[in-house]
């Protein structure tokens, strides 16, 4: 059996990590105005159940009154929220441009895989009805969330009003409904973790041994989705109230920032999924809809999937 080097086995993970470290460094060093020391401290306090944002007992009556009336440490997180909101309005186009450029370069380098099909009627069922329902429900809901999310981000262009307000409400309700769909998909994402490979339930949910490049998409979907679901649900649940404002405002600010960050990161990997399923391989999207693929397609494009289906007598 051909042995692969560490680099060959983990190239996708390493390149993704390097890319994120590079982008993260530029943002943290040159753009963000967050008080990172406070944020780390706050996160630790929040994990222990204290979400007030008060890191130490007030040393003066003024500080005590400010904490009680307005919430603590305004200048630690709020200015970054303002900066990030404006940045999203003005510069998010550049992020999409860079992401699409990466896929264009990939396409130029690798082209489109076009499997030769001579027996189109010899098909194998890969996705069950349940799986397809979950997959397309997920695609539909994410599309709605992306569009309605951009409706909030770019409402300077729509100039607000009834329709954008309705879309914003729809974003919140769809987001709450998506939590269930995200959870099912997270189980799918977890099915290919190496430690669970022998578990037949996970192994057969989606057949095939996914390459690291695909695992990265699933991994980020699961992790960033968790961030979006948690922050979104909490933001909606912690409805603004004048009586509890000072106790929860800092927590809400951090949650909104988490929502911003997770949405930007998940978008890249969603675009990656769109490229992988709709552009890089001809016929993949059609199979995702019908649930079946020609046997020759699987032999040429996804032999690992065919191998798994044969093991359970589905091919």
């Amino acid at each position: 059996m051909e042995s692969k080097t560490f680099w060959e086995c983990n190239k996708a993970y390493i390149l993704t990590a390097l890319g994120l470290v590079l982008v993260g460094f530029v943002f943290v060093k040159y753009l963000m105005i967050m008080d990172w020391g406070y944020l780390i401290q706050f996160t630790l306090h929040a994990m222990l159940g204290d979400t007030s944002g008060v890191m130490s007992a007030p040393t003066s009556e003024l500080q005590q009154m400010m904490n009680a009336a307005f919430g603590p440490a305004y200048n630690t997180v709020a200015p970054e929220i303002i900066r990030a909101s404006n940045e999203r309005q003005e510069f998010i186009w550049y992020v999409f441009f860079a992401e699409i450029l990466i896929f264009v370069l990939l396409y130029i380098k690798n082209g489109r895989v076009n499997p030769t099909i001579t027996k189109p009627n010899d098909t194998v069922q890969v996705f069950t009805s349940f799986q397809r329902a979950v997959i397309w429900l997920n695609i539909g809901m994410i599309s709605v969330l992306v569009l309605t999310g951009f409706n909030i981000t770019w409402s300077l262009r729509s100039e607000g009003g009834d329709l954008p307000r309705l879309l914003r409400e729809f974003h919140e309700l769809t987001g709450l409904a998506w939590i269930g769909v995200w959870l099912i998909f997270t189980i799918i994402a977890a099915k290919d973790m190496k430690g669970w490979r022998s578990n037949s339930t996970f192994r057969h949910f989606l057949p095939g041994s996914y390459k690291p490049s695909k695992r990265v998409i699933w991994f980020f979907y699961a992790v960033m989705g968790a961030g979006l679901c948690f922050s979104g649900a909490m933001i909606i649940t912690l409805h603004p109230s004048s009586l509890t404002h000072a106790d929860v405002i800092q927590f809400r600010r951090v949650l909104l920032y988490l929502h911003f960050g997770a949405s930007v990161l998940i978008m890249f990997f969603i675009l990656d999924f769109v490229y992988a399923s709709a552009i890089s391989v001809k016929g993949y999207l059609k199979g995702l809809w019908t649930g079946t693929y020609p046997r020759e397609y699987l032999e040429q494009v996804a032999p690992d999937v065919l191998e798994d289906l044969k093991k359970v007598g589905r091919a």
Binding site: A78, I81, G160, E169
Partner: peptide, 25 residues
Amino acid sequence: DKEKCIGCGYCLYACPFGAPQFGHE
């Protein structure tokens, strides 16, 4: 301008005094 406001709540995060208020609809 309430006709323009979409109720996103960003003003609440930015306000140092917790002034913006949102009812249920």
